[in-house]
Write a protein that binds this DNA or RNA. Sequence first.
DNA 1: AACTCGGGGCG
DNA 2: CGCCCAGAGTT
Length: 323
Amino acid sequence: MTAGIVDRVVDWFARAARPLPWRDAHVTPWGVLVSEFMLQQTQAARVEPRWRAFVERWPRPADLASATDADVLRAWDRLGYPRRARWLRACAVVIVERHGGVVPADDASLRALPGVGPYTAAAVASFAYGRPSAVVDTNVRRVIARAAVGAAEPWAPSAARDEAEYRALVPLPLPGDDAARARAVAWNAAAMELGALVCTARAPRCEVCPIADECAWRAIGAPTGTVAGRPRRKQAAYAGSDRQMRGRILAVLRAEFGGLGHAALRERALAASGRDARADEVRYERALRGLRDDGLVVETSGRIALPGDEPPAPTRGAGGPDS
DNA sequence: AACTCGGGGCG
DNA sequence: CGCCCAGAGTT
């Protein structure tokens, strides 16, 4: 009885949901968009303090549009995937220039924003504007796979299949059916929360699950304890990776206003490197090139800086280019 | 379809 | 130390 699943998860959410700040009723669509960017591949607990500071400093798209990428990258702090920070500011610019400073509500306009994919577009439409869009993230994928399909592991992410599996459980409401629309919106938040708190990837807490008795996976005999898990594509080790070196370089530049000369930046980025210093230098050059290609750092007159953080034009008699 | 892209938290 | 996380863009 799939109708039971939706309503019971919605009921459970009403009493068990975490009080996450971006769910407050007064949060603007812009605040929702900011939260969705920060939450891409990043846990809610880590996002919370940065989200608060961010929306307080830049409460409207126009505010962020007039900031610099360097400002945004510093506010982003160590949230990871710093491209998201630049995409978010680019979103603000588009929203100001093409949408009158108002976050759009329709799927096509949202998808046209940089860094907004199927998930983020659906989430903003639903959470900010109450639209019954199919919000399918890794949590929802797993909850539907287990409770409705009966599989231990979710299917591989796919926009087409995500939509199909979702609609099999939550049909698109007919126009004007406000009750069905509200139910779909409530499910969108509730299913994600169930996946985050109860129907977790490795150690699901079926004993406290509100739909355990209707779960197709349990009916088949879900294991107790830890789920073995389908072998995923292994993420390369972070230690010793280009990603780690990119992170180090950006950390140095976030702390150093106005940027640094090549030699000073390399020295600081490699300061923490261990015995394989030669390999680290190779990684450094590759990481710096990648950051420049991504627009996360800029080079002007021999200095490396965060974009928008370039040093002031040299005044007559001032010091040399390297520090 | 497979890669790349941060960083931290947790078992 | 390995796995996972409110994904998206590129190749």
